[in-house]
Simulated scan of single mutants.
Amino acid sequence: MNCGGSVSIPATSELADLILRAARRLRAAHAAALDGLPVNPHQAHALRAIARLEPARPSQVAGRLRVARGSATEVIDTLEAGGWVARTPDPSDGRATLLSLTPSGRDLLARVAQARDRGAEGILGGLSPQERATLTEALTPLTTPDPQA
């Protein structure tokens, strides 16, 4: 903003860089907020994806995570070993399995959500209600529903 009160308009690439820097700060804050929980950010993302799709096929989770099926399987295996995800046979396709959260997985998901809120508050907490409303209004048109999110 300049001294005359008008807003300078950044180049599109500068604005994109600003948004990316903000997103990196949010991701770092979320990762730091997960410290002390038994999952890393990628595993937490997988846990949220399974909860959204439940019951989910591993291939659907891979799509949500935007990773190869093998990479998703590794994360799912870790979540299953932790007792947070259960695999069951798909009743409509005996060759396939379905994933669902266990009760302890639901508890962990709630703790992950609280941690994400704390991380976001650490970055966004300094914004006034008006700034939050303005930011929401500006970013909402840029976010189209993404079936992979």
Results as ranks from 00 to 15, higher is better:
83 G>M: 01
83 G>T: 02
106 R>S: 14
85 V>W: 01
119 G>R: 00
57 R>S: 05
33 A>R: 00
79 L>G: 04
134 T>Q: 15
34 L>M: 03
69 R>I: 09
111 R>F: 03
54 E>P: 05
101 L>S: 01
3 C>G: 15
1 M>V: 09
88 T>S: 10
77 D>S: 14
22 A>G: 13
5 G>S: 04
2 N>I: 15
31 A>Y: 00
61 V>C: 02
52 R>M: 14
128 S>N: 07
55 P>E: 03
39 V>K: 00
64 R>Q: 13
122 G>L: 01
16 A>M: 10
50 I>P: 02
46 A>I: 01
57 R>D: 12
26 L>I: 05
148 Q>G: 13
16 A>N: 09
11 A>K: 11
135 L>S: 09
123 I>Q: 03
132 R>E: 09
49 A>M: 07
72 A>V: 05
109 L>V: 06
127 L>W: 07
134 T>V: 13
124 L>I: 08
53 L>R: 09
130 Q>A: 12
8 S>A: 11
42 H>V: 12
126 G>P: 06
17 D>P: 07
73 T>K: 14
149 A>L: 12
109 L>T: 09
141 P>K: 04
41 P>K: 02
48 R>W: 05
114 Q>V: 11
115 A>I: 01
37 L>V: 12
145 P>Q: 08
49 A>R: 04
54 E>N: 07
132 R>C: 06
53 L>A: 07
53 L>P: 05
109 L>S: 11
90 D>Q: 03
5 G>F: 00
15 L>C: 14
86 A>F: 06
136 T>G: 13
52 R>N: 11
116 R>F: 13
116 R>G: 12
102 T>Y: 00
99 L>G: 03
7 V>E: 10
61 V>T: 06
143 T>S: 12
100 S>M: 07
52 R>S: 15
140 T>K: 03
6 S>P: 12
58 P>N: 05
27 R>E: 15
133 A>I: 07
22 A>C: 10
94 G>T: 13
21 R>L: 09
100 S>K: 07
47 L>A: 00
80 E>F: 01
117 D>I: 08
110 A>T: 13
95 R>T: 12
82 G>M: 02
66 R>Q: 10
104 S>T: 13
138 A>F: 06
40 N>K: 06
121 E>N: 15
147 P>L: 01
25 R>L: 12
43 Q>N: 07
129 P>Y: 02
55 P>K: 01
101 L>G: 03
54 E>L: 00
1 M>E: 14
25 R>W: 08
29 A>Q: 07
64 R>P: 05
61 V>P: 01
3 C>M: 10
47 L>K: 01
144 T>Q: 15
62 A>M: 03
4 G>P: 15
60 Q>L: 06
147 P>G: 04
141 P>Q: 09
88 T>G: 10
28 A>Q: 11
113 A>C: 14
92 S>R: 15
95 R>M: 14
123 I>T: 06
134 T>R: 11
55 P>G: 05
58 P>K: 01
53 L>K: 04
31 A>P: 01
130 Q>K: 12
96 A>N: 14
58 P>R: 00
71 S>G: 13
84 W>F: 07
78 T>Q: 10
75 V>F: 00
133 A>Y: 03
99 L>K: 02
112 V>K: 00
40 N>I: 14
57 R>L: 08
39 V>D: 00
140 T>P: 06
18 L>Y: 08
122 G>M: 04
90 D>V: 02
121 E>S: 14
148 Q>M: 11
70 G>E: 10
45 H>C: 15
8 S>K: 14
8 S>V: 11
6 S>E: 14
104 S>G: 13
